[in-house]
């Protein structure tokens, strides 16, 4: 084959492979990755429970950069046993609530009751809590309690959820400035697409319909909330 044609085919194949990956496992490319206004006003804390080392690695490598890029204050905790880091987490959250106008929480843990930790913080500071996203199974009913505590928006999952799939899409959409409703709806849609794909190729993970029933995230509170922070 002539060298010119060989070069064209060689250049085209990696591009086609990347396109194939984007169309099957990705949620597209966000052309606009600018940081929404008010970064200096907002902070975020994330906590990962004691899971396998691989899961801890994946969650941290994915989450940390998004938080540090889109929030002026960002803290990430990884528990090494059930219930540890309570003192450190509460103290860090208290400090974030003192210094930032809006604080978001990402509770990346199986069925959990971090809400009891947050209750220890004085009420007037808790009013600065904004988004609480909880991956925990069966933790959707905590929504009202979080709103009473001071959060403006709570997002959770109803059953034995595969919430890590949702979280991947949600963090990417939320940090790009979409409102909570849009971020939740589009992440639910992408999650369903991923479940349908896994149903076809990895049926041992279960039927897409059942997975969606257990995992579809819902919002309690302000659905129009977005990352962009405004001076209170």
């Amino acid at each position: 084959m002539k060298r010119r044609y060989a070069a064209i085919i060689t250049a085209a194949l990696p591009c086609l492979a990347f396109l194939a990956v984007l169309c099957t496992i990705g949620d597209g490319i966000f052309a606009n990755t600018r940081v929404p206004a008010g970064k200096e006003l907002r902070a975020a804390l994330a906590i990962r429970d004691n899971v396998t080392p691989f899961q801890k690695w994946g969650t941290e490598v994915f989450t940390k950069r998004y938080l540090t890029r889109y929030y002026a204050g960002a803290w990430y905790f990884t528990q090494s046993k059930k219930g540890d880091l309570e003192k450190e987490f509460v103290s860090c959250l208290d400090s974030a609530l003192r210094h930032y106008a809006q604080v978001d929480l990402f509770l990346l843990a199986h069925t959990n009751s971090y809400i009891k930790w947050v209750e220890q913080i004085p009420e007037e500071r808790r009013q600065r809590l904004r988004l609480v996203y909880n991956t925990g199974c069966h933790n959707l009913p905590q929504g009202e309690a979080w709103l009473k505590l001071g959060a403006k928006t709570y997002i959770g999952h109803p059953g034995v959820s595969s919430s890590s799939v949702f979280y991947y899409f949600f963090l990417r959409t939320w940090t790009r400035g979409h409102d909570a409703q849009h971020a939740t709806d589009s992440s639910n849609r992408y999650m369903e697409k991923a479940f349908r794909l896994s149903e076809k190729f990895l049926p041992k993970f279960g039927a897409a319909e059942t997975l969606m029933k257990e995992s579809t995230a819902s919002i309690t509170g302000d659905t129009a909330l977005r990352l962009e922070a405004r001076q209170p």
């Binding site: 194949l13 990696p14 990956v21 496992i25 990705g26 490598v61 950069r65 998004y66």
Partner: peptide, 26 residues
Amino acid sequence: IVLFCIPAFLAGAVYLYALLVFLTWV
């Protein structure tokens, strides 16, 4: 190419996508 190169291209594309996502560039 079908047996050896295309699987390697696909694997490379997955690593590249992960890299871009982790860097928050896409």
